[in-house]
């Protein structure tokens, strides 16, 4: 469906967005398989309507929210963000959604809420990747943000892409977008939001803590143990046009987010 939104140029890059096809056929969504094309092939097996989000933990308004109820009071915006995958590729994507901070404010977290935790749908009968015998992910997929990160003006809940409802493979019906962090932080198909005192463990941190930290800020100065993060391939690329560009710290969003990490050693808190 076509969405009603207004552009948010102050939060948008003027780089050229990747074509719709590229954004919707090249995805990491391991619930549907580990191949880049698996999600576009199999994500239609997931049913996203009706959808509800369980809100729990340190807040005044916990409960089960129908998706519409969670979003309705807010005006949709379009934000064109860079997305940098930890695998050293990147795309420019025109999201439609609402600022995460606006939604969080309505849920009224209390003063004990230091972190926000998110969970993806756990439904093996709809998600073939969750049925795989040799997957090392302990489903459901989990992610989390520090409260101040979640309240940052860039943190976004996306429900659309190119002005239309999100396709399932891109994390329908509602997903997180935190553009200064590696893509895996931007958890898809969210069914649970929990406000917590303690720092939650994210899925990749559980699988390989030496490779993936809780923060996962885009940082060319800190290599992934298996590859360098200094450069990225901006997709779509071509066989004779690899499109290498230099990776920027915080994916180029340092102006908005560098303050969050003042005094932190980012090679330790990677």
């Amino acid at each position: 469906t076509v969405l009603d939104y207004k552009a948010a140029p102050q939060f948008s890059t003027d780089e050229k967005p990747a074509p719709y096809d590229a954004i919707t056929t090249y995805n990491n969504f391991y619930e549907f398989g580990t191949g880049k094309q698996d999600p576009s092939r199999y994500a239609s097996e997931m049913s996203v309507d009706p959808w509800s989000v369980e809100v729990e933990g340190e807040c005044a308004n916990p409960g089960k929210y129908a998706l519409e109820g969670l979003l309705k009071p807010h005006q949709y915006q379009e934000r064109i963000y860079r997305l940098r995958c930890v695998e050293a590729w990147s795309m420019v994507i025109p999201w439609v959604g609402v600022p995460l901070a606006e939604v969080i404010k309505r849920l009224e977290p209390n003063s004990d809420a230091k972190f926000v935790y998110f969970e993806t749908l756990n439904a093996p009968e709809q998600m073939r990747g969750q049925r795989s015998l040799f997957s090392t992910i302990d489903w459901p997929y989990r992610e989390g943000l520090r409260m101040d990160e979640a309240m940052n003006e860039l943190s976004f809940l996306a429900v659309g892409l190119y002005g239309k409802t999100l396709p399932n493979q891109n994390g329908a019906p509602i997903r997180l977008v935190v553009p200064w962090k590696y893509g895996f932080k931007s958890i898809k198909s969210i069914v649970r939001i929990r406000f917590m005192k303690e720092q939650p463990k994210s899925s990749w941190e559980m699988i390989a803590p030496s490779e993936y930290g809780f923060y996962a800020n885009v940082n060319p100065e800190v290599d992934h143990p298996r590859w360098s993060q200094k450069m990225e391939r901006r997709l779509p690329s071509g066989v004779f046009r690899p499109n290498w560009i230099e990776t920027e710290k915080f994916n180029g969003y340092g102006e908005q987010v560098a303050g969050l990490y003042k005094g932190m050693d980012l090679s330790r808190y990677y």
Binding site: K36, R233, V239, P242
Partner: peptide
């Protein structure tokens, strides 16, 4: 696949 541009947005990886 290369000739038909059938390798998606990241052909280098696929190849």
């Amino acid at each position: 696949d290369i000739i038909n541009a059938n390798l998606g947005p990241d052909p280098g990886q696929v190849i």
